[in-house]
Amino acid sequence: MTTTVKVPELPKRTKKLYAQDIKDRFISIFIGIFAVVWVFPIVWTLWSSLRPYSEIRAGGVFSPPQELGVFNYASAIDRMELPTYFTNTVLITLPAVFLILLLGSLIAFVVTRYSFKFNVAMLLLFTAGNLLPPQLVFIPVFKLYLLLGDLVGDRRFLYDNHWGVILIHVAFQMGFATFVLSSYMKTIPKEISESAMVDGASVFTHYFRVMLPLLRPPLASLGVLMITWIYNDFFWALVLMSTDNKRPITSALGRLTGEFVTDYNLLAAGAMIAALPTLIVFFVLRKQFVGGLTLGSTKG
């Protein structure tokens, strides 16, 4: 922070800096104590998940462990049918994120690279749409899904179907993707597009060959953020699905909490497994996650 030139000239200032140093030490310790408090709930859940519930019922929460192991995990995977729920999560999350990135980048591309009368209005439409409360949208979407289902002769065409949940995520989050990607695209020099057009590239080539490769960094950030958001979604899969074993893991947790209420430590293991993919994001892809989060809020 300070340069060596400044130190000798003002002894008063060094004294002040010293005081600040001590203050900083206190601040650091204070924040440190709370940091421990912050991770404690997760550590405690992890610890509980390694013990049988019967031990805690017999000896209380602080009883020394006699048995430690991953038995709760094995049993959670088996009894809670976690593989089914995880498959559902993958079947919903991957297509949804792919479509969000594709469609969002298409709109952002057209809006920033070609000038139409309604450029800003379009962008506003998508960004505002993303901010509407999901509850405001639910009733008509639900009826629409049933109606379309009746039209094609299968009530579960969209309602109670992965595709119904995928489509609503795409429709909503596309707004956010459009907003983030368009502010990124504005920073890409116009000359690149112009030279492509002068070379006679079609709109199609312009998008896929010229722009898309340049969009890799924001697409990666946005992709990680979207995966986390959709993975963590609780509401849509809860209301748009009626068959429990079609639900993704996060929404299934609601029912599992009720069902396994008698074996808390099994539930702890289940929750830790459900948290695992997001913990991977935390440990491995944090740069992208934070990048995606802040791209949208501070405009790069």
């Binding site: 057209v110 509407l132 949208v137 609503i168 459009t178």
Partner: peptide
């Protein structure tokens, strides 16, 4: 490019 995303967004967010 504009039509498909806009249709989806309007049909499933704004119209409802």
């Amino acid at each position: 490019f504009i039509g498909i995303p806009t249709f989806l967004h309007v049909a499933l967010v704004w119209f409802p």
